[in-house]
Nucleic acid binder design. Structure first.
Lengths: 217, 217
DNA sequence: AAGATTATTTTTGAATTCATAATTCCAGGA
DNA sequence: TCCTGGAATTATGAATTCAAAAATAATCTT
């Protein structure tokens, strides 16, 4: 089941541009300067433009006729919609993971869970959010559904740039942690229905949304 | 909220190749001959190759290093995974549509429903499947979630080539129709929770899957 | 004549070129 | 000074070119 190493030039370029967008090096709404990036990456315009077509399809940039590409703005509306879909996909992943998760995957998620707890206890929010994210990704992987995993990863990519900026209130935070406890329980019991239900109602994204309420566009 | 007319050359080419794959003009596993297609479309290799990159990302073709593109085979596993995700997305769409559907959209879906019923009564399966598909699409649209709609459409595209080939047994068929009755009821009542539940368990894809059990790779 | 080996052709990946559209810059006029 | 209009510049979209890899054809050896 190893993936064929897809080491294409345009793929590399796409990845680098994705990172630049996520890091804010390329600001939302700004034009994507082909020439500059070509020089920076040491490639010609051909592979760069191929990458832009793919990125446009992914929703990272938008193509304006005869005016090249602009970095797409992530509106509050789009963000909300994306979280809605991701949460639903996580719920499905939970259901499937209950039936399909391997012992190794479960062990790994448990380890992440304890890591997350310790970050919660020490009040380290950014580390907490990072591990939290890893747990959700691990559950999606445990679904063993390649299509689900692909779609989820793509959506996750898109919202990467606003993730980890949230400021959680203590109330929300403690409730989210307790929901995670239930999730682990359900996973141990291989109870997909329960896990799916928890994830369908899990407030992670809602919390982040509210934290991002006034943010960008 | 009008969409910017994205009439790019590579987009046109991509669409035409998608259709050729859906119709079987380009057979699964076969190579995609750049030169031939360029002549056929009257474009140079540049936009064609850009289209191929996008199609590869969508899962229609796979890129082999120094060996161009091959039409991706749709394995039974991938098909099952795709249906699993689509069904989950439809369920979410149902929940949202319950809250957000407009009067015009409801009227349209009702009309499609009666059309579908008449095809069922006259035993016209291919027409039935077509309208059935339109109803599911309309429900997804009624979710008013652009991200959901995009993801769904993309997945729908991918399985297009195996859709409408199914042979439904009478038992399955009548049950599917009765589920559709409940869906319409729930929609009229704007009861998203119920609609979502029905769609989550709706056996449309399961039926098609079983019909496709022995089919292509 | 069959199989291996080399030469030729074809195809691919990427850079370059070219025509056209958009942007910038600058002069002239209100 | 601020706006307008047009030339000069730059960027984009797409075709073409070029080098390298793969596929095919042809030759040689046994």
């Amino acid at each position: 089941m190893d993936k064929i190493r897809q080491n294409t030039l345009h793929g590399e370029v796409a990845e680098r541009i994705r990172n630049m967008i996520a890091q804010g090096t390329l600001a939302p709404g700004s034009r994507v300067p082909e020439k500059t990036l070509c020089e920076q990456f040491g490639v010609s315009r051909t592979p760069l433009r191929e990458a832009l077509k793919v990125l446009a399809h992914e929703g990272f940039v938008e193509l304006l006729p005869n005016r090249g590409a602009r970095v797409a703005k992530l509106t509050k509306e789009t963000l909300k919609n994306t979280f809605e879909v991701m949460q639903s996909l996580e719920a499905l992943a939970g259901e499937l993971a209950g039936q399909r998760i391997t012992g190794a995957e479960l062990t790994n998620i448990e380890a992440l869970h304890y890591q997350m707890l310790s970050h919660y206890k020490s009040g380290n929010m950014s580390e907490y959010l990072l591990v939290n994210q890893q747990i959700h990704e691990a559950i999606v992987m445990a679904s063993q559904n390649e299509v689900l995993i692909d779609v989820y990863k793509n959506l996750n990519h898109r919202v990467r740039r606003v993730r980890f900026t949230a400021e959680l209130s203590n109330d929300y935070w403690s409730q989210a942690v307790s929901e995670h406890e239930s999730m682990i329980e359900a996973l141990r019991a291989r109870d997909g229905a329960t896990l799916g239900g928890i994830l369908r109602r899990h407030l992670r994204n809602k919390v982040e949304m509210s934290a991002l309420e006034e943010m960008a566009e």
